[in-house]
């Protein structure tokens, strides 16, 4: 390879590796903050400050969903299959919100009684795509 081209190749490698290192350092520094939500286990381990809005994510525990009659208020439990957090919310839930399905809640955590007052509920969809008929047949409906 001609010398000038080899030098240009070094320039290319230098640009790519230096920007990779720069971005990598930023990502390492931000690591925890890039995560969209805390799991219940992480929350119990290092309970964040009170009066600071955070996101918590996990599964809606089966059988825990409880709608208060004559209001939009709902209570349910978010679990990561190890720890649990009780969530209170008042408002309209997204279509995909279901028991045993993924959820991300934004709100305030109260460490004293392990409860979470949410002001926003988002449904987390998984990567499974199945035809309706097949699932109904499997479940024997």
């Amino acid at each position: 390879m001609i010398k000038i081209r080899r030098n240009r190749l070094y320039a290319v490698l230098f640009i790519v590796s230096s920007s990779a290192v720069a971005v990598g350092l930023v990502l390492i520094a931000l690591n925890q903050n890039i995560n969209l939500f805390y799991s219940p286990s992480e929350l119990l381990e290092s309970g964040p400050l009170k009066n600071k809005s955070i996101r918590i994510g996990g599964l809606v525990e089966k059988g825990s969903l409880n709608r208060v009659s004559d209001s939009l208020e709902v209570n349910f439990i978010i679990t990561d299959l190890k720890e649990k957090v009780a969530v209170k919310y008042s408002g309209i839930l997204p279509d995909l919100f279901k028991e045993d399905a993924g959820v991300v809640a934004t709100g305030y955590y109260d460490k004293n009684n392990n409860s979470f007052q949410a002001f926003e509920i988002l449904a987390k969809h998984d990567e499974n795509y199945e035809p309706k008929e097949v699932v109904n047949a499997l479940e024997g409906k």
């Binding site: 969209l36 799991s39 991300v104 988002l122 987390k124 969809h125 998984d126 990567e127 499974n128 795509y129």
Partner: peptide, 18 residues
């Protein structure tokens, strides 16, 4: 952890889309 789901089309294992 993100709100966006992981990929459904997988090259090395069976895909999670019918």
């Amino acid at each position: 952890n993100t709100l966006h789901q992981p990929s459904s089309i997988k090259l090395t294992e069976s895909s999670t889309i019918s």
